[in-house]
């Protein structure tokens, strides 16, 4: 099993997301994350999909996605030639006794504290998946209440 990041440029038609996600479930492809949002061209969106599978199924995923009528283009974002970012929000149980420890850890990762309550903190971190995984692993020492991740977005480096 390997992972691939696909960047898909799609027209904003009704049902476009369901056409894309339906293709994954119907053909039994694995989807790890999917993010969609606006882009530089009005009426179009960029969708970033992280999919996993063997070489053959990843090739089929790319071809089947390219075949969708709403898809204008599809690119594979190769690791060395692209940047990926993901945002994670983590709610950690942190009363006065451990609050400072959590904040120090967040500082090391340049994460932001975006909400503080008597018993908990919400931390925001942006980074690639490796950085986020490492941060979450370190926070395991505290009591994590909830995690929400956006899934990655990515762009190829340079022009073309």
């Amino acid at each position: 099993m390997q992972k691939k990041v696909f960047q898909i440029f799609v027209e904003n038609t009704s049902g476009v997301l369901s056409r894309i996600s339906g293709l994954f479930s119907r053909r039994g492809y694995n989807i790890e994350s999917i993010t969609a949002g606006g882009c530089e061209e009005p009426g179009f969106s960029r969708v970033t999909i992280v999919a996993s599978g063997d070489d053959e199924s990843l090739e089929q995923i790319e071809k089947q996605l390219a075949k969708l009528v709403d898809v204008r283009s599809i690119k594979v974002l190769a690791p060395g030639e692209s940047v990926y970012r993901e945002i994670v929000l983590i709610k950690v149980k942190a009363d006065a006794s451990v609050r400072q420890n959590v904040i120090s850890l967040a500082d090391v990762f340049r994460a932001k504290i975006i909400d503080v309550s008597v018993e908990s903190l919400i931390i925001e971190l942006t980074g690639d998946q490796g950085k986020i995984d490492a941060f979450v692993a370190l926070l395991e020492g505290f009591e994590i209440v909830e995690i929400a991740r956006t899934g990655i977005v990515g762009l190829g480096r340079g022009i073309n």
Binding site: S14, G15, S18, R19, G22, R26, V69
Partner: peptide, 16 residues
């Protein structure tokens, strides 16, 4: 119906 036939059509439209 557009939802139901999604995997059997090349494309579908719901005219609004």
């Amino acid at each position: 119906i557009t939802g139901a036939v999604e995997s059997f059509v090349k494309y579908s439209y719901l005219v609004k």
